[in-house]
Computed example of a mutant assay.
Amino acid sequence: MAEIQLRNLTKRWGSFVGVDKFDLTIRDREFLVLLGPSGCGKTTTMRMVAGLEDATEGEILIDGKRVNDLDPKDRDVAMVFQSYALYPNMNVYENIRFPLRVRRIDPATHDERVRRASAMVELDDFLHRKPAELSGGQRQRVALARAIVREPNVFLMDEPLSNLDAKLRVSTRAQIKNLSHELKVTTIYVTHDQIEAMTLADRVVVMKKGVVQQVGSPTEIYDRPANAFVASFIGSPAMNLMSGQVTGGTFTADRVAIDGVGAPDGPVTLGFRAEDASVVEGGGQINAPIYTMELLGDATMIAVRIGGALVSVKADKTYRAAIGDMVSVAVPSDHVHLFDATTGERIDG
């Protein structure tokens, strides 16, 4: 049992606010992802939970017990960092075993626990090797096994996949997903990669400049972003956002006219996802020359320029055209998202 409560957690350095009034309960066994760009406060939040940073204000409770004044070693959390932090003079077996020795766990249990942890991350054939003889993905798995072997109350993972190449990232992500299902340990995972967040999380916390923008399941955040920032950060490609004007239920911008928009007259930001629009023969809501085209294998991604923004549309994989050709794009009004032109907050029409 490891419920974590963060109550108005704040971190300041002088006048700079790194995390501002972070207030959230992380449920027992939940996999929570902190997502946002560099400098948004996600790693600082996790380091405060770990005890590596002192909170300026607010409280951290693990299982109802206030841990603000406890040393990291007394909080029963295990961390996996972006850098693997392995001991080069020890083989894989001893690296995994190290936390058990430091914590003076009964030596009679070490071998069984090390081998169970190594099996979970498929390292049984590498236990005799030194870190220098391993690939980046294997080293990251050693770091994961070293955290698993402790059997902690809480896992804290800080961008653990960012040093891996794209293919390894996919396979290691799958491994972490499977481990979280098997181990059922409360996990806080920090990343700037929204694909990691969408695939791993039970809930996602999107942060910007130290402030929580939205908390919800990946589906909720994808389908109903709370503001234009969240909309622009989630999705691959990100949601298209266009500045324009609503007059009598019609949104207009350069080369754009979309009827049936439920917003008061005035300036708005309109968004839609690439997969919700389609290329048509004519009569679409957007008519513009193709700016660029990318063949993705399963689809063709077309982009047109609207004002200062690039707007992406997913077409059929067989679609072919040249840059500069005029294209007509249908945008269903029931798939658009509207945001306040000034604050960026969602408008529910």
Rank of each mutant, 00 (worst) to 15 (best):
E3I: 06
Q5P: 01
Q5T: 11
N8Y: 08
L9F: 09
T10Y: 10
V17H: 01
V17G: 03
V19Q: 08
D20R: 14
I26E: 02
R27E: 12
R29Q: 09
E30P: 02
L32G: 05
C40H: 11
T43D: 03
T43M: 01
A50H: 14
A50Q: 08
E53H: 06
E53G: 11
A55T: 01
A55E: 02
I60F: 09
K73A: 13
R75T: 09
V80G: 03
S83Y: 14
L86D: 06
Y87K: 07
N89S: 14
V92Y: 01
E94M: 07
E94F: 11
N95L: 07
R103V: 02
D106W: 11
D111K: 14
R113H: 06
R116A: 08
S118M: 02
A119K: 13
D124C: 01
D125E: 15
L127P: 02
P131G: 12
R139F: 12
R141C: 00
V142A: 01
L144W: 10
A147H: 08
A147K: 00
I148K: 00
P160Y: 13
P160L: 10
P160A: 04
N163T: 06
R169Y: 11
V170T: 12
R173K: 09
R173T: 05
A174Q: 09
Q175F: 09
I195Y: 04
E196A: 04
T199G: 03
R203Y: 14
K208H: 15
V212N: 03
V212S: 13
V212R: 03
Q213T: 09
V215A: 01
V215E: 06
Y222Q: 01
A226M: 09
V230H: 06
P237D: 06
G244D: 11
T252F: 03
R255Q: 15
R255N: 15
A257Y: 13
A263W: 14
G266N: 08
G266T: 04
L270F: 13
R273D: 10
A274W: 02
D276V: 07
G284W: 02
I286W: 13
N287P: 00
N287G: 13
L295P: 08
L296T: 10
A299L: 11
T300H: 12
V313K: 13
A315D: 11
A315G: 15
D316W: 05
Y319I: 12
I323W: 06
I323D: 08
M326Q: 13
V327E: 08
D334F: 04
H337G: 02
L338P: 07
T343W: 12
I347A: 10
